[in-house]
Amino acid sequence: MHIPDGFLNNNLTVGLLAGSVSMLGYCLSKISKSVTVASSRVLANNVSVTGIDSQLGFSENANKYFQRLALIALWVFAFQMFNIPVKSATSAHLLGGVFAAILAGPFAGFAIISFVLITQSLFFSDGGILALGANIFNMAFIGSFLSYYVYKYFSRRSHYPGVFIACFFSVMTASLVCLLELELSDSIMFSTAFKDMMNLHLGMACLETLITLALIKVFRSINGQPNE
């Protein structure tokens, strides 16, 4: 689903790039704040309360948290390399947005998928450099950030329906928005390509669900229960 340069018009490309960079900055600031708060909580439990003000900052827990985010990113990158045939003459790979968001939370999930997309675009020509904003919007914002709240809503009783619905939401909504962007750029007619786009991504959504469920289980069993 990585959009290359040339498919989208300049106005849309620049607008989405500006929005995505702003959102990435906001997510990084939220991550920074959450880790600072976590550090002070640890200090409050272990040290005298008067020590908090003078020792606010990142603790050993924060380093482990950042290490965990990096590891989740490595898993997403590696599994995105693995294309699997889903229909005749078409292949698909994991998006990883739901996997990242469930393990790391919505803000860190957005940052993780954004960093993976930046690496793929700059070093591997996988997705355009100018189209990076659109790809981050589709796969990190819709595919990870928004999907996390879908997961949260549907996983109140059980984890599995939440993952299933979030993965389908992630893939199908991201592909729908991708189609809208292509229509707005006069690359394709939304009404004529809608059925094909949905058909192509249905297999990908099933694949996403299965791989996400398996990866979350394996990652948690190896690395423990992560923070959300």
Binding site: M1, H2, I3, P4, D5, G6, F7, M81, F82, N83, I84, P85, V86, A89, T90, S91, A92, H93, S121, S125, G128, I129, S175, C178, L182, S187, I188, T192, A193, D196, M197, L200, H201, M204
Partner: peptide, 25 residues
Amino acid sequence: FASKLPDTLETLAINYGFEDKAKKT
């Protein structure tokens, strides 16, 4: 073992004839 087949968006671009719009970076 990864498949070399085009991905979903590439397939759509080929089927609807706009794959030539892609600029190589």
